[in-house]
Amino acid sequence: MGTTIGIWIAAGLTLFIYSFLYKDNPFYKFAEHLYVGITAGYWLIYTWAYVIQPMLLDPIIKNKEFILIIPAFFGIIMLTRWFPNIAWLSRWSIAFTVGMGAGLGVTGAIQGFILPQVQATLIPLSGFNFETFNNLLIIFGVLTTLIYFYFSKEQKGVLKYGSKIGITFIMIAFGASFGYTVMARISLLIGRIYFLLSDWLKILK
């Protein structure tokens, strides 16, 4: 019985959301507000149960890890925004978080993107075959794409043509990525329609 009610609710809400494809309407509004409200509440509880309690309260109370009072302080001063007189205090936390993100981003980018990508472009060119042609295409594509992202000079002459070829490579890559992702989205749609026809309407077995 419980499962049946659940399926009806899920099917109803699915149709409410899909009704947006026609136009904004009260059914969509209901489903939207329900979804937003439930997820906001869920994340509040999630943050308490999986972040504040196990990573802050329990270590301080049970393990006496008083060093955690420092991040807790930065967290609490974020709430000073409710009090205009001391609202400026929240900027400390923001500054710390943004600075930390930017700093970590530099080493993360070097290690995760720049060096591996440069290394991956150093590819052998042996013999006159299709693989060599393919590798040459990769090297040429990377070089011209980098030219496209060169901002300090006006795109004239070699830079202009390099940049045009670069953006062509980018667009070809986007086209391939677009098709690939659309395929994945279609499979999500099929999954939803299958749920409606199978679990709900029992048309499909």
Binding site: K23, I38, A40
Partner: peptide, 20 residues
Amino acid sequence: MYITQDQFGYAAGVDGMMMR
């Protein structure tokens, strides 16, 4: 304003806001 920290909840909320 804050909407929600759920990916598609956020998308639904922003879409609704765009329409209105």
